[in-house]
């Protein structure tokens, strides 16, 4: 099908975009990569009054690694650009591990990381990564200071964020990994590049003698928002090489409340949570050893 008629604005600066968005209020809708919004328009699932195309705004396409190791991704950075960014990968390997699972190369050439977060799809990889890294979204609006909203407050429900009328996400910030921590990302999809039936991002932190101190996990496609779960209890104090990762996976399965759909039943998803967690945790622990001088 074809998109319904809409007004079109293509501002050339952030200030102009914010003025246009403020003017339009509820009638305005930001168009970034269009890889989620245009299908929704073509399927007539949404009919905004006016699209505010931010693609011609200079200065929004930067990836910056901050001094504290967090990675700030501008609103027009395409998935493909983040994937190829060497410093971002070095600072936060989870970014590339997850981004390589976002759609197919052709979609990644156009879709943006910020757009993925703004879209707030609980099946999206970047929502889980923002959550587990303790990241935040920088939200601008005309006539006020840019506000910084943490992942927990940002995601309200499936496809629902706290972005209000007149607001533009100018960047997202992914938090730096904790010292002596490692990460892993795994997902299961019917085909590489499809939305995952279930996916998991995990971090494992070790102490100086390579014993587990903290285990955290965030999931894709298992709940309305990307919650971060603490899975430390069953493995606390255990050596990374012999820790009872299965118990941590079972704990995870007891904490999530997945729903079933066409692609996977709720029970199957819960089973995937347990299995993928059990597989991802030793990878993250090994990553922690490799990335730091923890005595292996």
């Amino acid at each position: 099908m074809k998109p319904p008629a809409f007004g079109y604005a293509a501002p050339r600066s952030v200030e102009e975009a914010l003025a246009v968005l403020a003017d339009l209020g509820h009638d305005g809708k930001v168009l970034a990569g269009g890889q989620s919004l245009i299908p929704l328009l073509s399927m007539r699932l949404t009919a905004p009054h006016t699209l505010v195309d931010i693609n011609r705004i200079p200065g929004l396409a930067d990836v910056t690694v901050a001094e504290d190791g967090s990675v700030i991704v501008g609103a027009l950075v395409r998935h493909a650009e983040l994937l190829a960014h060497a410093q971002a990968f070095e600072a936060l390997p989870l970014l590339r591990r997850a981004t390589s699972n976002v759609a197919h190369a052709t979609v990644r050439n156009r879709g943006t990381t910020c757009g993925s977060v703004a879209h707030a799809d609980p099946s999206g990889e970047m929502t889980a990564i923002l959550a587990i890294t303790g990241g935040s979204v920088q939200i601008a609006a005309a006539g006020r200071r840019t506000r910084d909203v943490g992942a927990r407050e940002f995601f309200l429900g499936p496809l629902e964020s706290c972005l209000g009328p007149g607001e533009l996400a100018v960047s997202v910030r992914f938090g730096a990994p904790a010292p002596r921590s490692g990460s892993a990302f795994l997902e299961l999809a019917r085909r590489q590049g499809d939305y995952a039936m279930c996916g998991v991002a995990v971090t494992v932190t070790l102490d100086d003698s390579a014993e587990v101190t903290t285990v955290r996990a965030a999931y894709l496609s298992v709940g309305p928002v990307p919650d971060v779960h603490d899975l430390t209890a069953p493995v606390a104090g255990q050596r990374y090489s012999t820790a009872d990762w299965r118990a941590a996976g079972e704990l995870a399965a007891s904490l999530v409340e997945p729903e079933g759909d066409l692609h996977a039943s709720a029970d199957y998803r819960r089973r995937l949570v347990s299995v993928l967690t059990e597989r991802a945790l030793p990878l993250a622990a090994a990553d922690a050893v490799a990335r730091t001088q923890v005595a292996a």
């Binding site: 293509a10 245009i38 195309d53 052709t106």
Partner: peptide, 27 residues
């Protein structure tokens, strides 16, 4: 499909593959 799934409409934009059904001509 006209919603980004099949890839039949892929064209190159400045040499880079993109779905032409997921872009407006004005862009």
């Amino acid at each position: 499909c006209e919603h980004g799934v099949c890839g039949a409409c892929t064209v190159l934009l400045d040499g880079v593959p993109v779905r032409s059904c997921l872009m407006f001509a004005v862009q």
